Computed example of a mutant assay.
Amino acid sequence: MKKIALITLVSLFLSCNSSAQKKETKAKASFPVTKTEAEWKAELTEEQYYVLRESGTERPFSSPLNKNYKKGVYHCAACDTPLFKSEHKFDSGTGWPSFDRVIEGNVAFGTDTKIGYTRDEEHCATCGGHLGHVFNDGPKATTGKRHCINGDALKFVPAED
């Protein structure tokens, strides 16, 4: 009787393991710009390193780029790749810089399951730096996408007059 109870208990525990609990292991992709973690730490601020290299998220409403509406281009703060144009920026009210489209070919996409459900993650296609996530709740008049990007992942380059 004890064996049956033990087998039933073990089976119950094993059946409770969902895919959301499994740690995703993805092979490191190779990017045109690659550096050691020590090199990235030496070049980036602590906040930039946290966001770009550790896939962190800055506090909402903390980035000065959130309310920046000057004309120009938003580049990757790590490798200077142009990622987003100012004419595609909009105020989403979320507290992070938001864009309705990317500069094609410069942003790569992946899957993020770290918080228990699947989200579409965005990376710089040149250095692999984590930028943020893309959602389907953007302006319907354009693409319907909201690229929710950490300001610490960006460097703004103003347009020349």
Rank of each mutant, 00 (worst) to 15 (best):
residue 106 N to V: 02
residue 19 S to T: 15
residue 155 K to S: 03
residue 93 G to Y: 08
residue 80 D to Y: 01
residue 85 K to E: 10
residue 116 G to W: 13
residue 114 K to F: 09
residue 24 E to V: 15
residue 120 D to H: 11
residue 155 K to F: 00
residue 5 A to V: 13
residue 54 E to M: 10
residue 38 A to W: 10
residue 109 F to K: 14
residue 91 D to W: 09
residue 96 W to G: 01
residue 141 A to D: 15
residue 17 N to C: 15
residue 29 A to W: 10
residue 107 V to A: 00
residue 155 K to R: 15
residue 18 S to D: 10
residue 107 V to T: 09
residue 158 P to H: 06
residue 16 C to L: 15
residue 8 T to M: 13
residue 55 S to P: 02
residue 24 E to K: 15
residue 112 D to W: 06
residue 9 L to H: 07
residue 120 D to F: 11
residue 39 E to W: 05
residue 153 A to Q: 03
residue 150 N to Q: 08
residue 5 A to H: 11
residue 79 C to T: 07
residue 4 I to A: 12
residue 90 F to A: 01
residue 82 P to G: 05
residue 160 E to M: 12
residue 58 E to W: 03
residue 67 K to H: 11
residue 43 E to I: 06
residue 75 H to K: 12
residue 88 H to N: 09
residue 65 L to H: 04
residue 28 K to V: 10
residue 114 K to H: 15
residue 72 G to F: 02
residue 138 G to T: 06
residue 161 D to H: 06
residue 33 V to D: 07
residue 100 D to T: 02
residue 11 S to P: 01
residue 74 Y to H: 03
residue 29 A to E: 15
residue 46 E to I: 12
residue 90 F to L: 05
residue 144 G to T: 10
residue 161 D to C: 03
residue 40 W to E: 07
residue 151 G to D: 01
residue 25 T to Y: 15
residue 38 A to P: 05
residue 64 P to H: 14
residue 43 E to S: 14
residue 95 G to E: 01
residue 129 G to Y: 00
residue 122 E to R: 01
residue 18 S to P: 07
residue 114 K to D: 14
residue 23 K to D: 07
residue 111 T to A: 13
residue 9 L to Q: 06
residue 80 D to K: 13
residue 79 C to N: 05
residue 160 E to Y: 10
residue 103 I to H: 04
residue 42 A to M: 05
residue 18 S to L: 14
residue 8 T to P: 03
residue 44 L to Q: 01
residue 115 I to R: 09
residue 66 N to V: 08
residue 64 P to R: 15
residue 127 C to M: 08
residue 144 G to H: 12
residue 70 K to T: 09
residue 3 K to S: 09
residue 34 T to I: 11
residue 61 F to H: 12
residue 61 F to Q: 04
residue 138 G to V: 04
residue 24 E to T: 14
residue 41 K to A: 12
residue 88 H to S: 02
residue 158 P to T: 11
residue 43 E to P: 04
residue 135 F to L: 11
residue 4 I to R: 14
